[in-house]
């Protein structure tokens, strides 16, 4: 018993345990997703989060202890955003040709998202602080948290809403586009990146590299536009 305890004390102190749990759960989730033929519901983020969340609950591990180990994985979000330049560069001719549809869709999509979120939240009587935290939810988490904070919202709540939005978008996008009969991978990817940021982009890369490229661009552009539009929209619609 004493030996077991000292092993636990050792493991709880180094990043080794939770880093290993995160990677192993992800490999398992990826296998499950592959077995289902990358079915949208078998979203790898959703499965991994459920697995790891279950383990944390079962062992009574507080989230900060887990994050201490998992932060190395979290850190890679930055470098992964930087290397989105690679598919963008390799397909720059395709991207340049689609500039006008992209910018129009960006303006329409960002404005719709804000109007629907604020309008619906008011209709449902969602309290103001939560509403402010909701407004930037389609934007990648780091920027969304900054926007919410500047507007007087709760950045932690925003981070949660951003992740949930990403998972919802990644699950919805493929069945919706198929139902609409849209085969243009540029348009499908662009919508996924705009509505569901990095998680939508990850889903888009699973489907096609063209879709992933356009999703990455949409994610970057929407972060910029929503940072400007969100304060205006909250001011106008309130």
């Amino acid at each position: 018993m004493g030996g077991d305890f000292s092993l636990w004390v050792y493991l709880a102190k180094t990043p080794l345990l939770w880093l290993t749990v995160t990677l192993t759960a992800y490999v398992l989730a990826d296998r499950i997703a592959a077995v289902t033929g990358r079915h949208p519901i078998a979203n790898p983020v959703l499965i991994t989060v459920t697995l790891v969340g279950g383990i944390l609950a079962a062992t009574g591990t507080p989230y900060p202890v887990y994050f201490e180990g998992a932060q190395f994985v979290h850190f890679l979000l930055g470098p992964a955003t930087v290397v989105l330049a690679m598919p963008l560069y390799e397909r720059r001719a395709t991207v340049r040709r689609a500039l006008i549809p992209m910018l129009t869709a960006l303006a329409a999509g960002a404005a719709t998202t804000l109007a629907v979120v604020i309008g619906l939240a008011r209709l449902l009587d969602i309290p103001q602080p939560i509403l402010v935290s909701l407004a930037p939810k389609s934007v990648t988490s780091g920027v969304a948290m900054g926007i919410a904070e500047a507007l007087g919202g709760d950045p932690t709540l925003t981070a949660i809403l951003v992740i949930l939005t990403g998972i919802i978008g990644a699950i919805l996008v493929t069945p919706m586009m198929n139902a609409l009969g849209i085969r243009d991978m540029r348009a499908r990817g662009f919508a996924a990146g705009l509505a569901a940021h990095g998680i939508g982009t990850a889903r888009a890369f699973q489907v096609s590299e063209v879709a992933g490229t356009f999703a990455g661009i949409a994610m970057g552009l929407n972060a910029f536009l929503t940072a400007i539009l969100a304060p205006l929209a909250l001011h106008l619609l309130f």
């Binding site: 992800y26 983020v45 994985v73 979290h74 981070a159 992740i163 990403g166 990850a202 890369f205 992933g212």
Partner: peptide, 20 residues
């Protein structure tokens, strides 16, 4: 290699949802 595993990188933040 990084882009193929973009999903993995949202896991640590996503697990925060379960806790809250």
């Amino acid at each position: 290699g990084l882009l193929m595993n973009l999903s993995l990188m949202f896991v640590p933040a996503g697990v925060g949802v379960v806790g809250r």
